Computed example of a mutant assay.
Amino acid sequence: MLYKLNLEHILFLDIETVPQKQHFTELDEDVQALWEQKTQYQRKDEFTPEEFYDRAGIWAEFGKIVCISVGYFAPKGDQRNFRVTSFYGEEIKILKDFKQLLADHFSQAKHLLCAHNGKEFDFPYIARRMVINGINLPYKLDLFGKKPWEVPHLDTMELWKFGDYKHFTSLKLLALVLGIPSPKEDMDGSMVKDVFYIENDLDRIVTYCELDVVTTAQVFLKMRNEELLADDEIKKV
Rank of each mutant, 00 (worst) to 15 (best):
S182C: 01
V131P: 00
R129A: 05
V151L: 14
Y125S: 03
G118S: 05
E120A: 15
E199T: 01
G145W: 01
A103K: 14
V192I: 15
I205R: 08
I126Y: 04
G179W: 11
S107V: 01
K161C: 04
K146N: 00
P138C: 13
E150T: 04
D122I: 10
D201Q: 11
M187F: 07
P183L: 12
Y197W: 15
K140G: 02
E150C: 06
K184Y: 07
E185H: 11
H105F: 10
K119E: 06
S170V: 03
P181L: 05
P152R: 14
V195Q: 10
H105E: 12
D142Y: 12
E150G: 13
M130L: 10
V195H: 07
I135W: 09
M191R: 14
L137E: 03
N117C: 07
H116S: 09
L154H: 06
F123H: 04
Y165T: 05
G118K: 11
M191N: 14
D104Y: 12
I126G: 04
F123K: 03
N117L: 06
H153N: 11
N117M: 02
F144D: 07
M130S: 13
S190E: 08
R129D: 01
F196N: 05
D194S: 14
A127T: 02
T169F: 01
K193V: 00
A109I: 03
Y165M: 09
F144Y: 13
L211I: 00
S107I: 01
V131S: 09
L141S: 02
N200I: 01
I132Q: 15
L102F: 07
